[in-house]
Amino acid sequence: MSFLIKSNFNILVTGFGCCKQEIFATQCSLYDIQRFGVNFVSVPEDADILVVQGFYNKKGIIRILNIYDRMKNPKGIIAVGSCVLNENLFNPGSELVSQFRNRVIINMHIPGCPPRPEAFIYAILKFLGISMQ
């Protein structure tokens, strides 16, 4: 099972942030994340890990929790960017993200605003336990 996850790792990206651009840059030919068997999917049942980034409104938080419930075990969450790690950059004082953080367990934190694509790949590799030489 762990071998399967290691060699075919499916990612679902949610949120409306600017970090999304940097995350999707990893699909392109310069940083080809598919080399490690990592795929970007669009169905929660298919995904191994949920990437949370950017801003959310009230409905967005409910929807993302729904998505997390629909995912199959084993599952995890990667939080990207200071919007999720700290607070919404463009709406400080909004409690939504902190509510979200209290409801779920976040497995991996990537700081930055936005983090570089390499940092994202680094986090994925660290998550999968692929050694870095």
């Binding site: 030919s29 080809d32 080399r35």
Partner: peptide
């Protein structure tokens, strides 16, 4: 075709 390398794992 995308000038990528594609899967090298497994």
């Amino acid at each position: 075709m995308d000038l990528r390398r594609g899967y090298k794992i497994s």
